[in-house]
Design a protein around this nucleic acid. Structure first.
Lengths: 249, 249
DNA sequence: TTGCGGCCTTGACATAAATCAAAGATCCCG
DNA sequence: CGGGATCTTTGATTTATGTCAAGGCCGCAA
């Protein structure tokens, strides 16, 4: 694991942790939480840093506390596909697996709550609440991956961009314990190229479609990252989603 | 659940079940297996039947015993994406979820080992081996979904077809407890249209690329479904996979 | 202040795959 | 044994997106 030695980081008590209610520890009781508390340590990374290369040994598992990271696969000839976006409360690392299957890259400054893998696995064996929560989270990730398969296989470039905006808006709302609806304001945690890698497009197409959505009033941009969505439902229509958002991802 | 009343079906004892070593029950001890045995019942379906529509209540969970089924998502305007292929030993149904998120369609004649959801969930709560195995299987499915995201986002039509052939060959080999390698022979469990839906292509493109792979000697066809792969590694090269197959999915 | 390096946007053109269209296999049912 | 229905193949043409290229914006360091 490539480690950028700790920048100054907030190290909250678990009880006061911002992701307490959604992370892998969500179902733990006080005593179980204390055991995790004893194991945990924080690491921070800068935007652009690779936390882990595909094939590396994974000594750690971790939860995203703040910031955003991507999981990406790269083919021999360099074609790149991002296969997961990690927002706060998302979990990295598969208990029982030796090596990282994907590159894990911080796309913004990032704070991770880490556990050495071995002790975590031992604790998990003694603590059903952790395994249960991990199963739930994995099933949710599987749903998200399958939703993305529909996007990659069947949506147009415009729908892809609208879908990405909708997902970022939704996750951002969830962080602030809000329902996604009406006017929403957020920052894109990705460069145009990172968006392209996630959407199965080129960065030029991403740029063109963002311009088109802006022209059509679906989104407003201030700088390159700061987005205002005047009407979330209108955005969902552009995304081609038949559901109106469903539950918070 | 649309039920086609039981055609004559083989009803093996769990101990003699062909998927015993790979299914959700793989980790169970004799007593746990006996509990499952008491709950289980078989259902068979014909090729083309829809077992379950997206939005239906799921009264059951089940393992595929023989045959192949697909999970597919359909957009309002009819665009269709298959998000999972279910081979023997694969599991359908999410404990804790009320309604089916996808259409589940038998693409060949199909035998399922079913459990009513409620009793299964209760048994699972008492039987850690089941939950553990389900977590493992879900993590494997997540890996498979992410591999498919790379395919959908970045591979050419030819690579997509080659990848599909490789996966079917691999799963077929796994059924027969063989390693995927050298010359392999199998039947495609999907129509051209179902392949197109899985690969994010049109059926015409599927047909053309299959013809092209045939012309180039990567595959041989007898009828429309029966495939011979003279050299599995050559197929993997065409699929653009950097790994040589890795573990059996 | 200037110049440099990352990003991003936009334009012109190329191309892989989609769409539209027709006809060839197969299989099944009467 | 014949006639549809379903599935598949192949051809001609269109189109969405990729590729190549040029230039703009902005922050940062000298």
């Amino acid at each position: 694991m490539t480690i950028h030695e700790a920048l100054p980081t907030a190290v909250p008590q678990c009880g006061a942790c911002p992701i307490r209610h959604r992370a892998v520890c969500a179902r733990c009781e006080a005593d179980e939480l204390a055991a995790l508390d004893a194991l945990k340590f924080y690491r921070s990374f800068e935007a652009g840093q690779t936390l882990l290369w595909a094939g590396d040994r994974m000594e750690f598992v971790a939860s995203v506390v703040s910031g955003v990271a991507t999981l990406t696969q790269v083919m021999e000839d360099g074609r790149t596909q991002t296969v997961g976006l990690l927002f706060p409360s998302d979990f990295v690392g598969r208990p029982g697996r030796e090596r990282a299957p994907y590159n894990v890259i911080a796309t913004t400054d990032l704070l991770m709550c880490c556990f050495r893998k071995k002790p975590f696995e031992e604790l998990m064996a003694r603590t059903p609440a952790i395994g249960q929560r991990l199963l739930e989270m994995t099933l949710d990730e599987l749903d998200a991956a399958r939703e993305w398969m529909l996007l990659l296989g069947r949506k147009t470039a415009r729908e892809k961009i609208a879908s990405l905006m909708a997902i970022v808006a939704r996750r951002d709302a969830a962080l602030h314990l809000r329902q996604p609806q009406g006017k929403m304001v957020f920052d894109l945690p990705l460069t145009r190229e990172a968006m392209a890698d996630y959407l199965g497009l080129t960065l030029e197409t991403v740029s063109r479609q963002i311009s088109a959505l802006k022209r059509d009033g679906i989104i407003e941009l201030e700088g390159k990252r700061h987005v205002t969505v005047p009407d979330y439902n209108r955005l969902l229509e552009e995304a081609g989603d038949d559901t109106d958002g469903g539950f918070v991802g």
